[in-house]
């Protein structure tokens, strides 16, 4: 069992609450200390919560198509505010319409996210990746 703390939330003016609740339940059962900020979360709220709780990762959701605008600059803001080693995951309907998944992934990786997920993803796969990434991060310390 992991005792890492992770911060969850739906970014921007997005009020899709259902997937967020599913993520909270899933990662809690997976053994994480989950800090769920709910819907309509700003970049600074994610960062504030991560600093205060000593979180190892921030998992950002975006469902309403404005993800690109909302998510841009989060990595820089983390660095600026002293979170220089935090993992950033992002997932959901990140752009409007049926954009090419590979292009979207490229775009968000370039923004500084460590992992990018489409709307339909097996959460077990995400959990495996998260465990690996956190282990790698801990070793690097």
């Amino acid at each position: 069992m992991s005792t890492h703390t992770i911060v969850l939330g739906v970014i921007g003016a997005d009020c899709h609450a259902v997937g967020n609740k599913i993520l909270e339940a899933f990662f809690t059962r997976a053994g994480y200390r989950v800090v769920n900020l709910g819907v309509m979360v700003s970049q600074d709220e994610f960062i504030d919560a991560a600093i205060e709780t000593g979180a190892a990762a921030i998992l950002v959701s975006s469902l309403y198509g404005h993800g690109e605008i909302d998510c841009a600059g989060l990595r820089d803001r983390c660095l600026e505010r002293g979170l220089d080693r935090i993992l950033l995951y992002v997932g959901g309907n990140l752009v409007v319409g049926k954009a090419d998944l590979a292009a979207t992934r490229e775009k968000f990786l370039a923004m500084g996210y460590d992992r990018v997920f489409p709307p339909s993803v097996e959460l077990d796969e995400v959990a495996v990746l998260l465990r690996q990434d956190l282990a790698a991060k801990d070793e690097g310390r």
């Binding site: 005792t3 703390t5 800090v35 205060e52 709780t53 000593g54 979180a55």
Partner: peptide, 9 residues
């Protein structure tokens, strides 16, 4: 104050 329980030290 500072840090939630289990949080930043």
């Amino acid at each position: 104050s500072g840090g939630t329980d289990g949080g930043n030290t």
